[in-house]
Amino acid sequence: MRGEPSATRGYGAAHEPHGRRFWIMASIGFTTIGFGVREYLLATPDLDRRVNFVAFLVGADLVHDLVVAPVVCGLGALAARLLPSRTRAPIEAGLIASGVVLVLAVLPLRATAARTNNPTIQPLDYASATLTVLSVVWLISAAWLIIGLLRRSRELA
């Protein structure tokens, strides 16, 4: 894009020039990355484990970019289309919060520690616990929605 750095839209315009600071930080950063790789290679002589680690590292990137991001963007677009504009912000906030709550709750809900036979790991009824947290989330969203609607009706009056 040929726009000035202060353009209101577009990606290329956002690049800043890379000066000496960048190259110093890049040198330190890539040395640090190299140290991490070295530490892993020293700790893990087994080739299969090395390959597995790289697969998870790169796979995490790919799963996010090819699965998580499109799904979230799709849901966002769907919410934008379906929700009336006056109610959209608090409901979007509730959906974001619920998504994060479910990310944290999914493993306890699946009782991933059950095979340890250790009742002190994941000791709660996580279905109830998750519903309780989601109730808090949607109570906050509802309060936000009601306050917004009241404000708007007062402004109109």
Binding site: F22, M25, G29, T31, I33, G36, Y40
Partner: peptide
């Protein structure tokens, strides 16, 4: 080992990114 190595790798990437976006 993996979590420790990933920490150095991510923090190294973060240092480069901070340099680029400062």
């Amino acid at each position: 080992s993996g979590h420790y190595a990933a920490a150095w790798i991510a923090i190294g990437g973060l240092i480069v990114h901070v340099g680029a976006k400062w």
